[in-house]
Design a binder for these strands. Sequence first.
DNA 1: CATTATGTCTGCATCGTTGCAGAGCCTTCA
DNA 2: TGAAGGCTCTGCAACGATGCAGACATAATG
Lengths: 338, 338
Amino acid sequence: MAGPTLRDVAKLANVSIRTVSNVVNGYAPVSDELRARVQVALDELDYRPNLIARNLKQGRTGMIAFVVPELDVPYFAELAREVIKAARAHGYVVMIDQTDGDGDKERELLGRDSRATMFDGLLLSPLSVSAEELRERGNRVPIVLLGEHIYNGSFPHVAMDNVAAARDATAHLLQLGRRRVAAIGDQPYATGETAQLRTAGYRQAHARAGLEVHDELIVPTAHFHRRLGAEAMERLLALPEPPDAVFCYNDLLALGAIRALTRAGRRVPDDVAVVGVDDIEEGQYSTPSLTTVAPDKGEIARRAVDTLMESIRGELGPPPEIVVPHRLIVRESTAGEE
Amino acid sequence: MAGPTLRDVAKLANVSIRTVSNVVNGYAPVSDELRARVQVALDELDYRPNLIARNLKQGRTGMIAFVVPELDVPYFAELAREVIKAARAHGYVVMIDQTDGDGDKERELLGRDSRATMFDGLLLSPLSVSAEELRERGNRVPIVLLGEHIYNGSFPHVAMDNVAAARDATAHLLQLGRRRVAAIGDQPYATGETAQLRTAGYRQAHARAGLEVHDELIVPTAHFHRRLGAEAMERLLALPEPPDAVFCYNDLLALGAIRALTRAGRRVPDDVAVVGVDDIEEGQYSTPSLTTVAPDKGEIARRAVDTLMESIRGELGPPPEIVVPHRLIVRESTAGEE
DNA sequence: CATTATGTCTGCATCGTTGCAGAGCCTTCA
DNA sequence: TGAAGGCTCTGCAACGATGCAGACATAATG
């Protein structure tokens, strides 16, 4: 089980532990002859440095953790890919953890026995834990918040402008001439901050167009999953005056909604136009392909990781609020044939 | 940066380091009075144990790594969720890493400076690295291979029966009366072992039905992505005698194929029936919904993690070959309206 | 030739924790 | 009263690596 240590190699090569360490790390001047002898011993024993020991000594692990509610939500998976890439550029690896949006599992991260201390920094996409709670119970580990939750000044935070994004999506539908635009995904309670921002944007777009919002067209959902999108859409279709367009707060809801529409025999976009948010890859290949508001995931990941690195190096000033760009991508679900 | 250590707490509470450690771990008898005094000091300083040090001392980290080619391939994301769950049941956390199917990044894992030594075990879904290479260059870390690659007896291996799965999918199409059944996803080269098994199953199904295989209907693809599925389908549609059914080697290829069919004005399943493999959630909500061969992902994850745990505890005999069940799930893409 | 500089190599201490053996002290019982 | 036992508590060593200061031998210098 336990592999050979520097001590074993040193004994075999008949040199000091310190010299072996120097050879392994390429430090300090070591004569060619000795270097060769040590190398032979290294190969012979197939020595692998014990990273835990190295970490202990150096006080850093070279690992950061990326905590998401659900890994099989494509948005998070796609973001995780970008985070891994961005971290690699800094010589860091990423550990991904999944909380299921479960407040208790999230709080585990903050508790006394948390594994968080094993990481040089944390990238959090919190769902249930409030920023308040984070600040109070937080460990000493540098943290960057990602995408979710309202900025409260305590932590660096990276996200797109959710209000503007929702406004753009809704405005697009209104510009197409749709007049009963529904919204799927509101979360009118404490931890639904992102959803509320999107609802605000939805209302702003109506206000700017001089149109009224029909509150019965705003359907809340507990999660942002396909099934709930489909259910919400079914409820909307059962209204006396069903909508002629839907703004869904993410692409999964939108895909669920499209599914419900298709099943009900409505044509998309002819009868009902649909917009989502996130630009997950799936939306490019769905039938119809999905119009969506695309946050720049690569930029989110890079800015978040860069900020975390600064924080780890202790070079970070007051926690920045970083806003990354987004853009509307029009596809078949609102524009008909491409 | 550096938090308080046992030493700091001990000094404050005016007891020995060892006693603080005992209080923290609930070990050994400590008088109520002392325990209380230490607790006060612990709270005062907000002590957090240094897990790195603990790990070094105990020789284990409580972490395993799950290495996948691409995290934003839904199958891997969904599997990752199950792996995280299974590991949690053993008190383990999972670090997820992504190799992009890049042989070099995979080999990094095996190299001398690999971070692999930081984990108690490795769950690998290798793509480029051959099992051969794994065995030669492997570290001392326990390994379980997952899903991909042919078993070669050197490592524990968990997968479904790929030949049977492909046979079932193809047989289903043939039973529907389809006579020109195409196959998308063959990989006739060293690292395409899984794909080759599926091709074998495809051929077996034809043989058992007494039908001939038309080799021009077998389209290889470098990866299992939507785009390549769409491209392959376009090529098939351009044939003088296009197929009336397609067996795709995974769901993403199938969804890409359906997309290409829809765009070309073909109806699914009326003109062309489509089957995939993996049972990703997306296939339940696509239009049409996707018939697929579903491996039992929960079971794969559990068996893999259980096996890895045995291996970590040193209780594992000769490397087992574990086959998990699969089943055909018929949806609209072959059966019409549900 | 003595002295200083240079280049190699080594031992000790240390990171923060836990395993182990044992030191005190108090109780119990012959 | 004294030995044995039980309960608390402590110090030392160790996990495997690296930082530091210095030892030693050799080369360069006046």
